[in-house]
Amino acid sequence: MSAHSSSSLSIRDLHASIGDKPILKGLTLDIPKGEVHAIMGKNGAGKSTLAKIMAGHPDYTVTSGDVLLDGESILGLEPDVRARLGLFLAFQYPMEIPGVTIANFIRAALQARLPEGEELEATDYYAKLYAKMDALSVPRNFTSRSVNEGFSGGEKKRCEILQMAMLEPSYAVLDETDSGLDIDALKIVSAGVNALRGPNIGMLVITHYQRLLDYIVPDKVHVMSEGRIIHSGDKDLALKLEAQGYDWVEKEFGESGTKAA
């Protein structure tokens, strides 16, 4: 267990299920502020589910264990409360919200963080929004488009990173942010993420491919299989997984790796 648990996103022996089906089976992971960790694993290992469970998706039930944000349990809190406490999830498949512009959406999200009766200052807001957009190479006309509606894969992911930049979370989970991106889009999105790295944020990057980790270089790499972290290492682990696949690690470290589909 980390000595920095009071300023980390900490997952303790987490068990969770959807309906009767167990998905997480005793997952433990600690992401200290200031670090970037990556979770890799086969399709169906439960990586995206972990992200949703941390964010409080109502379809999943946590049966035991805990998720602590800076030492405080966030289980049992509504998804919006967790978000306001500083947890951000960049979605693999961001939802469309017809008729709601990006500018209004982010503004509403920031407004929700202010105390009752306090209004977001419009000029400050737009100045900040435009600055972040420029930094992420997001065209200005984005602000008047409806959230994710008719966006390309790359635009959706850039929009996620823009939201992250504006909301300034203390912990961010990036779920398959590389999926659906060509190499140029991947570079832009990675540059955006790298620009947000720093001592005040802990990041968890979930990915299936090592490719993303060429651009977002992690401090630690974890391998997930059958709802648990079965092995951890430094960034070289990702290269080894890329070269040799997952079977060796599941055989060596997984309890039932050979049975995996």
């Binding site: 964010a55 409080g56 998706h57 306001r84 939802m95 959406f105 999200a109």
Partner: peptide
């Protein structure tokens, strides 16, 4: 859920 993950309450998300 997407809107709540950005910090909006369920009612605020519906309204939006």
């Amino acid at each position: 859920f997407y809107m709540q993950q950005r910090g909006l309450s369920e009612a605020a998300a519906m309204s939006l």
